[in-house]
Amino acid sequence: MLIPASEVLVAELPVERESHLGSALQFFFYDTPKVLLLLTGIVFVMGMINSYFTPERTRAFLSGKSEGFANVLAASLGIVTPFCSCSAIPLFIGFVQAGVPLGVTFSFLISAPMVNEVALTLLFAMFGWKVAGLYLVLGLSVAIVSGWIIGRLHMEMYLEDWVRNMPQVQATVNENVVSLNERLDSGFDSVREIVGKVWIYILAGIAIGAGIHGYVPEDFMASFMGKDVWWAVPLAVIAGIPMYTNAAGVIPIVQALLAKGAALGTVLAFMMSVIGLSLPEMVILRKVLKIRLIATFVSVVACGILIVGYVFNAVL
């Protein structure tokens, strides 16, 4: 239904349908509503689902579970538990205080921003289910394995002293009864908050995609970000660390790089690094972690992403 609509729109404009501009516009008019509709739907449903997985409930769920399995659980819960980077610290302390092991806490903290419904929906809508699926599986793997390694390193003493001295708390959940209406409300709220914030990045991403669709020859990036360039992946990861944006903000860049022939593994490594590792987040975490633990966290996750990048490039 969207394809004819976009054709009609382009036909109304004073451009040739067969020209570069015409085909770019058709692509833009078709892709924009498609991506935005899909995102709105998913964000709405996730907003409702999110209301079941409050941080308190997730914490109660994780405390007392044995490591290993708990890492898997924590990373998976990271997808559905609502999370904003400004809540990272209270969440971190809340988990540790309730006796959730440090490594498990990290699994959650790595997965929550990196693997989320916005990132997955956008990857699916713009690059297909294979890319989205691989991102999901590999993102979770990075979170699970990194958290597990950090747990094995037993770095509890590198928490700031005041955090270690906080009284232990029981992980309890106030069972507030949430009515269906309230869940619907929270769905609408998420749509307003998330779609209201990210639509501009999505437009930019699609516009770039449309522009390339119509004009730029492919393989432009292939010479320096292609599969055969071994140093491209580490470079992408390192370049991503100081950059910080949410999943939607990085999509235009991903779109541009991919369309010009950069290798998928390299680009996804870049995306994970931008979202998962960020300088501002380190600064915030410094309030509760000593430098050594932060450095360990960054190196372990960066290595994980590096491996993901190489695996992707090798497989595809």
């Binding site: 409050t54 400004c86 809540s87 610290i89 209270p90 302390i93």
Partner: peptide, 13 residues
Amino acid sequence: DIQQIMTFNVMST
């Protein structure tokens, strides 16, 4: 102040 915030036992802000 994060230390003060944590005395209220909240996990999200």
